[in-house]
Nucleic acid binder design. Structure first.
Length: 425
RNA sequence: GUGACGAUGGUCCAACGGCAGGACGCCUGGUUGUGCCCCAGGAAGUGGGGGUUCAAGUCCCCCUCGCCACCCCA
């Protein structure tokens, strides 16, 4: 029988790389705490309607990238392709905004999209994200963007760029959509086949195309910024001004549209400029989605802003940390495994060290001294504590310092003290 | 979903259509109670299935997986 393999595009994170994941997660939680964003955890799957209504039935994510399945024949479930819809659902379901006027939440976890894997793109991938509900002010936008940038900076990533744009409100979008269709329709034949289809379906996305045929005509297209009404314009100008005050370098890019339907007004994207991500250069992005609460059945409209960042991509862009090896010791038994008096004493000594907060390794196979020492060396043990017949009888331990090779025999209590002293040195 | 490229011990890399080899790692011993360096020995491999051939790791087809690009997005 063929050995089992993991599902395509879904990866194991092995011990060798787990430290970087944990460091990233800790850094994210730390920065969220500083900004007052509380962590929430939602299920990895939801009723499929949450996403088709929330994200937009016409988006690629919903049309062809969702993992859906039947829940014992009754309802159709979907593995979450992103985190915002679930967070909003949870806020609505638990009346979070009835308890406080503004909710600041953050989350992290796996997301699922059935795409062909490539560098920095997987079928199960991970996002960290933050959302603020109940505050429609430009300050909320700026705070959230600044939080995202702060986090990326905390990770040591420097080669990135922040792009911002405004999609305006519903009226603006409709107006702009018409303007775009009017502009591109005469050029229809010169566009890529994909964009010809987008012309009816989702004309804004033509601006996102990487096809040279589309790019050639992008420059002449009307700018959405010209379609903004006065209130949208004032909001966007305020966001940009605040970002400048907060020293968040950003460029205004009128062609930034993003792939989810729920955005209104401010959208932003953080792209890698170091080239370490290949074609998938977006580290993350987000924006304002003032209509989503209503879209999902909320009784009142709730202004909202949020973003998500891709963990795998951040890990690709972040520098390798130089992690100093942590202090640890090894306890070896100068007897084969069958001698329970000696091996038991070794295990008890390790237990006492661990109870005092020391990382202590025991090779419980209790093979030869040579192999136990080799193992201790592999693990980077600063000291090895040796227990044999004579030590156990005398209540003593032989302590060897690996770096110098010196070893001395002392009482058990002294040995414990020696380890604690070496650790704090 | 489309296209390109790829798949050899645990890892990295060799092998003209003709005996599958090296490095690192791993195990044992050299030292019946001592790691690293050194020495000796050992285990372990052609992703799966068909085909061509006297002979296939090598050529052909299919599958699977990986990877890159498109698409899209984190």
């Amino acid at each position: 029988m063929a050995p089992p393999i993991a599902v395509t595009g879904m990866n194991d994170v092995l011990p060798g790389e787990i430290a970087r994941w944990q460091a990233l997660e800790n850094a994210f939680r730390a920065v969220c705490t500083r900004y007052g964003y509380d962590e929430v955890r939602t299920p990895v799957c939801e009723y499929v309607e949450l996403f088709s209504r929330g994200i937009g039935g016409a988006t690629d994510i919903v049309q062809k990238e969702m993992y859906t399945f039947d829940d014992r024949g009754e309802r159709t479930l979907a593995l979450r392709p992103e985190g915002t819809a679930s967070a909003v659902r949870a806020a609505l379901e638990h009346g979070a905004l009835a308890k406080q006027p503004v909710v600041r939440w953050c989350y992290l976890g796996p997301m699922f999209r059935a795409e062909r894997p490539a560098k920095g793109r997987f079928r199960q991938f991970h996002q960290v994200g933050a959302e603020v509900y109940g505050d429609g002010s430009p300050a909320a936008d700026a705070e959230c963007i600044e939080l995202a940038v702060r986090f990326i900076l905390d990770l040591g990533v420097t080669g990135f760029k922040v792009r911002v744009n405004s999609l305006g409100g519903e009226a603006t979008r409709a107006r702009y959509r018409d303007a775009l269709v009017a502009y591109f329709t005469p050029l229809r034949e010169e566009l890529s086949p994909e964009s010809q289809g987008r012309l009816e379906r989702n004309p804004l996305r033509i601006l996102d195309s990487k096809d040279p045929r589309d790019i050639a005509h992008k420059g002449g297209a009307p700018s959405i910024l010209d379609s903004l009404d006065e209130a949208d314009r004032a909001h966007f100008d305020a966001v940009c001004a605040l970002l400048t005050t907060l020293e968040v370098e950003h460029v205004v890019d009128p062609t930034l549209v993003r792939g989810l339907d729920y955005y209104t007004r401010t959208v932003f994207e953080i792209v890698d400029t170091s080239g370490s991500l290949g074609a998938q250069d977006a580290l993350g992005g987000g924006g304002r989605y003032d209509r989503l609460f209503e879209e999902l059945g909320g009784e009142t409209s709730v202004p909202a802003f949020g973003f998500a960042l891709g963990v795998e991509r951040l890990l690709l862009a972040a520098p390798e940390p130089v992690s100093p090896k942590a202090f640890c010791v090894a306890v070896v038994a100068a007897a084969k495994g069958a001698d329970l008096a000696v091996t038991g004493a070794a295990m008890a000594l390790a237990r006492d060290l661990r109870a005092r907060g020391v990382t202590a390794h025991v090779d419980t196979r209790f093979h030869s001294m040579k192999s136990q020492f080799r193992r201790a060396d592999d693990l980077g043990a600063a000291m090895v504590l040796i227990l044999g017949d004579s030590e156990v009888r005398a209540g003593e331990v032989t302590v060897k310092t690996m770096a110098t090779g010196e070893q001395t025999r002392q009482t058990r209590a002294q040995a414990l003290e020696a380890v604690l002293a070496a650790r704090s040195a």
